[in-house]
Nucleic acid binder design. Structure first.
Length: 898
DNA sequence: CGGCTGGAATCAAAA
DNA sequence: AATTTTGATTCCAGC
């Protein structure tokens, strides 16, 4: 059935002759039927549950109506089945949209949903409740919808707990608002439908689906959201890469959770990028119980094993959350965040003073929608600049749910990371968002296997609040003018989710094995007088979260130089960790396709080797006749499988005088003199001297060829064995774009070497595609993006059309842009070894992303197609990744099942 | 007593 | 197919 629905939808879309609205409606109808059937089949007993639960939930005045609505609306039921719909509160209007009354299936509604809601607020009660039935009910409920719940907010953490309460309140009162403007976390996608009353939501709801232009994805999104994001939807979650795509799609764990999260937190975006796609994914999977499927067997098992609370925790999400009550409280209290929702509504309900912390009035977000977490945003825009003043340590052992917290991420100095927003003169506090992102060569996106973990306690000075956005936990931290818009991040730990749990999720394509590096990603959304919202983002240096890797893999944090004439012969000091007496340093040059063009072992001064430093002699480049700078990379190797990430290094034409560019480096003061931090580990600032214009060219040049660039590039995966051999004739044959050389060699080198490191540019570099949110910046930059509202503050990271030839230009008008280009490749990758393989080119990616803009189920195809066309290796890698992940999954399954 | 840690045993997948 | 190695998770114990 489901498949039929999906096929139908696809068919309609493909044919194009059928109005989208019609397709959508029809599709929804089919979906509903499917869901209903399944639901009924699986949870016929739900009704009882509801009753019991309801009793508990009375606390909220709103509940009644809310629930009522929910039950009434068929839509809801659908939602419950598939995440996409969770948010919907059955607004009659909304529902109408989806299904004509007449057509609505007589869902009795398992109303499930409701049950959940009610209870949530009373979580504590539940746990304590002696009534087996009650507990059971909960369990049931939880499991229901979530197909993929693991990453679901609920699952993740306590955060969800809060939400529970919020659910009640929020839904009814702040709905419309909330989704759009209120919480920073809200994603644009939140469906308007969510709020029963919110006119806004309704509005959007109604429009969205109907809109002709809307892409399938869009449909789900709220009116504004979709308009702006519609195109992105695709890009944002390119099926290929973006975890969000699928996973996101199914963020929802149990209905209850979802409700909570979404409604309350406003986090979730069911309709995110592509609700439809998500729904399709969910449906397309094996027919067997979605419910069950969504929950990893192991996870379920674990939960059950957990003990007394087992019932409550039956759901994966619940499990993680631990003490719900605690969450609620804490979150509740602590958060200043959400001015709107909580305070008003929940506040009274809980009886908690709205302003326990100074951070009571976070700025409201005017923007109708906020960029999805996998969107690439700049760190600077106009007068604003979001910077990581103090980087986190390169190692932080994440904790499993089965362990206790391992504390907050610390800084190298022993303190904690510090983030500051420059250029903000308003007196209104802002909310700094923090989530755990990936650190591989691909575009930054939420990490599927790690979640930020809120740390509380006496040692924590910074208040924070947890929220779920899509399936990613986001920590919200106040940025107060009185603190100079500076925040000490001492409240963020990192939670590791079991690979098997995540990999089993529908749509998840990434694999967890050896995918243990993350970055802390900070975002801030600043409302502008003109109604637009400027969103900035900056990512930290990579953080190795695996105990073992941290102890065994060599890590290069700094290098005394990153450029040198092709003649080589100079000694370079490397500082880092896990260097052994027999550590080797290999220099590598990779071709576009990822193949090693040249590789040689550099001479290491054995006597100089210390666990944290070593001296290596820069080997002469394979050709002394290079006309332009040649980016290569090197890595430290302790054994065949223990290698550091690729580090950037650039050979300069022998004749070119070396210019020393040492950006002020915070680290330098602490460490070896004149050591250059590696791209990831050090904070570098681009030389102020470099004009944008210049920067771009550089970028282009380097990109064009899709050069091995950067080092670390994805292209070069540490994993790949050093095979090597110089096969290629010239460094950048043909056109490989020679890096713009030096007038300021530095630039080149810097750019390459320190992509994100620079506080100023950091983010931007990673997000070349993002035009910059500031009003001033954007328009020009992405004129071509069709569909994207001109006024839209955000550009779809992937969707923006870029002039193809140019490497993704990084930038937009934004001043920050300069560095951008470089960044892209920087990341070294270890993980990739497996999943990604070599051959990944930034260029390719960029391109693919832009294509993704087309979104929809079709979008996926387009993206894939692109990859293949542009960079066969990439495409292959992707494909392999998928299939590869499949295996592990299978294995996991087997394992769990046993 | 509970949160953090550092270590290490135990499992399981990959080589 | 068996064995070894590597990576992921779970446990422990001390602070």
């Amino acid at each position: 059935m489901e498949k039929t629905a999906v096929l139908f939808m696809l068919l309609c879309l493909e044919v194009q002759s059928v109005p989208f609205s019609f397709c959508f409606i029809s599709f929804m109808f089919l979906l509903k039927l499917c869901c209903y059937l399944r639901f009924k089949k699986a949870f016929s007993y739900v009704p009882n549950v509801s009753l019991s639960t309801l009793t508990l939930g009375m606390g909220s005045p709103c509940l009644g109506s809310q629930y009522h609505n929910l039950q009434t609306s068929p839509v809801i039921s659908v939602s419950s089945c598939h995440q996409a719909s969770y948010g919907l509160h059955g607004d009659p209007m909304a529902s109408g949209y989806y299904l004509p009354p007449g057509l609505r299936p007589p869902l009795e509604s398992p109303r499930i949903e409701i049950t959940t809601y009610t209870q949530i607020p009373e979580v504590e009660v539940e746990e304590e409740s002696v009534d087996p039935l009650t507990k059971r009910v909960n369990i049931v409920t939880l499991t229901l919808p979530s197909a993929d719940g693991y990453r679901d907010p609920s699952c993740l953490s306590p955060a969800s707990s809060l939400s529970s309460r919020s659910c009640n309140s929020e839904a009814s009162y702040e709905s419309g608002f909330y989704n759009y403007d209120n919480s920073p976390q809200n994603s644009p996608w939140q469906s308007p439908c969510v709020s029963p009353k919110g006119s806004g939501p309704l509005h959007s709801c109604s429009h969205a689906p109907v809109s002709p232009s809307a892409s399938p994805h869009v449909a789900a999104a709220n009116g504004d959201g979709w308009r702006k994001y519609g195109l992105d939807g695709g890009p944002c979650r390119p099926p290929l890469y973006s975890p969000s795509l699928s996973p996101s799609a199914s963020p929802q764990g149990s209905p209850r959770l979802s409700c909570v999260d979404e409604a309350w937190l406003g986090t979730t975006n069911q309709y995110t990028n592509s609700a439809i796609v998500a729904a399709i994914n969910a449906l397309s999977t094996d027919g067997l119980a979605d419910l069950g499927e969504g929950v990893p067997l192991k996870a379920r098992k674990t939960n059950l094993e957990h003990g007394p609370a087992a019932s409550m925790k039956a759901e994966p999400g619940a499990d993680e959350m631990g003490p719900v009550s605690e969450l609620c409280q804490e979150d509740y209290l602590g958060s200043g965040r959400l001015p709107f929702k909580k305070e008003r509504y929940c506040g009274s309900f809980l009886d908690v003073p709205p302003h326990l912390c100074s951070w009571t009035k976070p700025k409201t977000y005017i923007s109708p929608s906020l960029p999805a977490l996998d969107w690439q945003l700049p760190s600077c825009s106009g007068p604003y600049s979001l910077q990581i003043e103090v980087q986190p340590k390169s190692h932080h052992r994440a904790h499993y749910e089965t362990e206790g917290s391992r504390g907050a991420v610390k800084a190298l100095s022993g303190g904690h990371p510090v983030v500051q927003l420059y250029g903000y003169v308003d007196s209104e506090p802002l909310t700094l968002q923090l989530f755990i992102g990936t650190a591989d060569d691909r575009l930054l996106r939420p990490h599927a296997f790690y979640q930020v973990h809120r740390i509380t306690g006496k040692t924590v000075s910074t208040p924070s609040h947890e929220a779920m956005q899509t399936s990613t936990k986001v920590l919200e931290i106040p940025l107060l003018p009185e603190n100079n818009m500076r925040a000490i991040i001492d409240c963020a730990g990192i939670l590791k989710l079991r690979n098997s749990d995540i990999e089993l999720r529908k749509g998840e394509t990434d694999i967890g094995r050896k995918n243990t590096r993350v970055r802390m990603v900070f975002r801030v959304h600043i409302n502008q007088p003109n109604g637009r919202t400027v969103s900035l983002q900056v990512a930290s240096n990579p953080i190795e979260c695996s105990q073992r890797s941290a102890q065994e893999l060599p890590l290069v944090e700094k290098q005394s130089m990153d450029t040198y004439p092709a003649t080589g012969g100079k000694q370079m000091l490397l500082s880092g960790h896990n260097f052994l007496p027999d550590s080797k340093v290999m220099f590598v040059e990779k071709a576009q396709d990822g193949h090693h063009v040249w590789e040689t072992e550099a001479k290491v001064d054995k006597d100089s080797i210390k666990p944290t430093s070593l001296v290596v002699e820069i080997p002469p480049y394979r050709s002394q006749r290079i006309a332009s700078a040649v980016p290569v990379s090197f890595y430290v190797c302790n054994s065949k499988r223990k290698r550091s990430q690729y580090q950037c290094f650039t050979y300069l034409p022998p004749s070119i005088p070396m210019i020393k560019t040492e950006p002020a480096d915070d680290y330098e003061s602490q460490g070896a003199p004149r050591m250059r931090s590696n791209p990831y580990y050090g904070q570098q600032r681009l030389p102020p001297t470099m004009p944008l214009g210049e920067a771009e060219p550089c970028v282009v040049g380097s990109y064009v060829p899709c050069p091995p660039r950067p080092t670390p590039l994805p292209c070069s995966s540490p994993g790949s064995s050093p095979k090597l051999h110089d096969l290629s004739p010239v460094p950048f044959p043909g056109g490989a774009a020679p890096l713009p050389l030096p007038s300021s060699p530095d630039h080149t080198s810097l750019a390459m070497a320190h992509p994100q490191g620079s506080p100023h540019l950091g983010s931007p570099s990673y997000h070349p595609f993002y035009p910059g949110s500031s009003p001033s910046s954007s328009p020009a930059s992405h004129p071509s993006t069709p569909g994207v509202a001109a006024d839209s503050p955000y550009l779809p990271a992937y969707g923006s059309a870029q002039p193809r030839g140019s490497p993704p230009t990084l930038l937009s008008e934004d001043s920050s842009s300069p560095a951008l280009a470089v960044t892209i490749k920087q990341e070294p990758q270890e993980l990739d070894q497996m999943t990604l393989d070599d051959g990944r080119c930034v260029c390719v990616r960029a391109r693919a992303h832009s294509h993704t803009g087309f979104t929809g189920p079709l979008g996926y195809k387009l993206a894939l197609w692109d990859f293949r066309a542009v960079c066969p290796n990439m495409a292959d890698a992707r494909v392999r990744g998928r299939s590869g992940s499949g295996q592990p999954k299978t294995g996991a399954h087997a394992r769990h099942s046993t």
